[in-house]
Amino acid sequence: MHYSRLILAAVLLFVLPCSPVAAEAAIGVAMEDFSYTDTSAEPTNQIAAHERRLQAFMAALRRDIGEGGRYRLVPSAEDGAAFKVIGGIQKTSTLVQWAKVAVIDIGAKRLVMDKLYSFRGDNDEAWERAEIFVSREIMAALAAPAPIALAVFDFELEDTTAASVGASAASDASHLAEATGAVREALGQSGRYRIVEVSREAATAGALRDCGGCEAAIAKALGADQALIGVVRRVSRTEYTLGFQLRDAGTGAVLVRGDSGLRLGADYSWKRGAVRLVSDRLIESQ
C-alpha cells in the first residue's frame, strides 16, 4: 500500500502540470455558418448535395479549430469570443469554386485575415481538401501575434536653408502631413502594428525630436506600446535626408533608428522617401 501511494503521487506530479486545468485558458472563437452561392448555371439541381457538403465542411472546420484545446468555439463576443470567423463559398463553374474567409479580432476591431481561395471540383473529396487547407489558414491567422499599438507622431522638418516662409511653409506642412499619413498607412497594413490615433493636443509644444524622448510618455498616455517620430532634414531646395526613431512607450528605450542617405527631389517626394525608409528599416527587416 505504501508503494502504491508513492507511485500515485509520482503520477500526479507528472500529469497535473500538463493537464488542461493548469494550461492557459482557451481562446474563444465564434464561427458563423458560411454562405453558399451557385452561379454556375448548371442544369442539374444540386441544392441538397451542396447543403450536405456545406454542413460537413462547417462541422469539420469547427472540429479542427477546437481540436487541441487552444481554442474553444463560442456563439458570440458576449460569450467570450476573442475572434470571429466568417466566410462564404461560391460555385462559378462545374469544376471551380471560390471560398472567401475572414478572421476578425473582436477586441481590436480589425481583420487579421481576409483571403480568397479557389478549389477545383464539387464532390466530397474536393470539399474535404478545401476544408483541410482553410482550417490551416485560419489556425495560422489565429496564432499570429497581436499587433503592437504604435503612436506615429507627425513628421517634422529640420530646415537648414532658412527658406520656409509664407507659401513655402504651407507647402512644407502639407507634404509633411502626406508623409506622415503614408507611413501610418504602410505600418498599419503590415499587420505588425495597430496605429493609435494621435491628436494635436497630445503632443507637446515644440519639436518632439528635441524633447529628449518625451514622445514615449505621450504615447503611453495614449495607450500605445511604442512611439515613432520622423524628421525630414532639408539640405537644399532639392536635397534632403530622412530619419525616424522608435521608442518603447513604457521604458523610453530606443528600439530602432533609421536614417537615409542624401536624396534628390522636391518636397513632394518626402512621402515616397519616408515610406521607403520605414519599410526597409522597420517592416521588412524584422
Results as ranks from 00 to 15, higher is better:
residue 65 I to N: 00
residue 16 L to I: 15
residue 173 A to Y: 10
residue 155 F to R: 10
residue 189 Q to R: 15
residue 41 A to W: 07
residue 130 A to P: 10
residue 154 D to P: 07
residue 205 A to D: 12
residue 44 T to D: 14
residue 195 I to L: 10
residue 78 E to S: 13
residue 121 G to Q: 01
residue 262 L to G: 03
residue 241 T to M: 02
residue 243 G to F: 03
residue 240 Y to Q: 05
residue 119 F to W: 04
residue 94 T to W: 07
residue 118 S to L: 04
residue 249 A to D: 01
residue 142 L to I: 09
residue 120 R to C: 06
residue 41 A to V: 02
residue 98 W to K: 14
residue 134 V to P: 00
residue 283 I to W: 01
residue 30 A to Y: 07
residue 180 T to Q: 10
residue 182 A to N: 01
residue 67 E to R: 14
residue 203 A to Y: 03
residue 85 V to L: 06
residue 119 F to S: 03
residue 247 R to E: 05
residue 46 Q to F: 11
residue 153 F to W: 12
residue 252 G to N: 05
residue 244 F to M: 11
residue 173 A to P: 11
residue 85 V to P: 00
residue 155 F to Q: 07
residue 142 L to S: 09
residue 264 L to P: 02
residue 102 A to I: 04
residue 238 T to S: 11
residue 221 A to V: 00
residue 247 R to C: 05
residue 137 E to W: 04
residue 173 A to M: 13
residue 264 L to C: 02
residue 112 V to P: 02
residue 156 E to M: 10
residue 211 C to P: 02
residue 155 F to S: 07
residue 245 Q to H: 01
residue 255 L to I: 12
residue 6 L to D: 03
residue 244 F to E: 11
residue 176 L to K: 13
residue 55 Q to T: 14
residue 33 D to C: 00
residue 6 L to I: 09
residue 80 G to Y: 06
residue 223 G to F: 04
residue 135 S to W: 14
residue 133 F to Y: 08
residue 71 Y to V: 01
residue 167 A to F: 15
residue 103 V to T: 05
residue 222 L to M: 13
residue 30 A to C: 07
residue 276 R to W: 06
residue 142 L to W: 06
residue 228 L to N: 08
residue 112 V to H: 02
residue 239 E to F: 08
residue 55 Q to L: 08
residue 184 R to S: 09
residue 9 A to S: 08
residue 208 L to H: 05
